[in-house]
Design a binder for these strands. Structure first.
Lengths: 180, 180
DNA sequence: TAATCCATGTAAGCAGTTACATGATTAC
DNA sequence: GTAATCATGTAACTGCTTACATGGATTA
């Protein structure tokens, strides 16, 4: 089964992008990785602890003036190796993404068509808003990392979000039409 | 927060489609709802029990010859009402779907481009296979439910799967090109 | 004779969120 | 004076999968 703990690798990866504290990682997630990955502090801090125990990173307490002390994490060579190994490992069975929108639609013959249409219109608005968010992220990436080797790959993932969301919007329009 | 237990509603919904046992529901999930919803027996049976306790369905033990006894579940009026209420409730914050493919790509500057390309080619193949699966599901729906009011909505969800997968394949090709 | 189908169910465990606690500093 | 920002962390809980148990009938 090779149960890969993806969260662990997400954090190892973030350690290569300039993030050095759990707090910074959370912020990064909530901005740049926002559209395809998200974890809570309740997950980040214990995982960081575990990563240190495994020798994949080191910690150092650094006092700050005015602000709370920080714990600075740095990737070790073993950590880098582990990350690279995960990157090059083939992707196995991708789990099915649960889709609440489709679940409701699947059973929607039990409600008036108008309600379903309203529902889809609302969903379309959410998608449109999401597209705007992506534009914001694009700017962030360009500001943050003009000369970073990362930027190219970050824009690939963003492009995914943009293209798939656009396709979803198209589908919404199609489906609304079919129902009208 | 209005924590909606989607699994419960998935099961209530399935009870309106001719599924009368937990076993049948699992089969239905693994075929027709396969691309956007999936649950295990360990989730189905306890939820069915709970649904009966809440008065949303009734059970009946029915002995069979040759095969194991079945427990036949039937939706009550209260159950139908509950389902309809959920259907008409607005969709709130859609949780971020974690995407392992994008997570790896995000950190892929740490590996040779060739490896990333191979990886994307492999992913593309998986997507292509998925498209074929969808065609299979389409046939299933058409056979299963020629005169069912459900069919229209089932085909909508399938259409979603087909269109989004096609868009993903396009993105794969684009990205492979950019990397070459 | 080994595997698969039918059909139900439970216990252990994991991944993850939510809510809470702490406490100084800065912005409105 | 109230809220937000910075920064770390834990405990309780939920949702879900996996692995196991049972056992006759059918298929390869």
């Amino acid at each position: 089964m090779a149960k890969t703990n993806h969260t662990k690798y997400a954090i190892l990866g973030l350690l290569t992008t300039g993030c050095r504290t759990g707090y910074q990682m959370k912020q990064m997630m909530d901005t740049s990785l926002n559209h395809f990955w998200k974890i809570s502090y309740g997950q980040i801090y214990p995982t960081l602890k575990q990563i240190v125990e495994e020798g994949l990173a080191t910690v150092q307490d650094i006092p700050q003036d005015g602000k709370p002390d920080i714990k600075e994490y740095l990737l070790t060579e073993a950590g880098e190796k582990e990350l690279r190994q995960w990157l090059s490992s083939p992707l196995e069975n991708i789990p099915v993404a649960k889709n609440e929108v489709l679940l409701k639609l699947f059973f929607s013959r039990h409600q008036p068509k108008e309600t379903t249409i309203e529902y889809l219109v609302h969903y379309q608005e959410i998608l449109q808003a999401r597209l705007h968010t992506y534009e914001g992220i694009e700017e962030l990436i360009q500001i943050h990392s003009i000369e970073k080797a990362d930027a190219q790959y970050w824009l690939f993932t963003l492009d995914y979000g943009k293209q798939i969301t656009a396709a979803e919007i198209m589908w919404c329009k199609d489906t609304i039409n079919k129902l009208s």
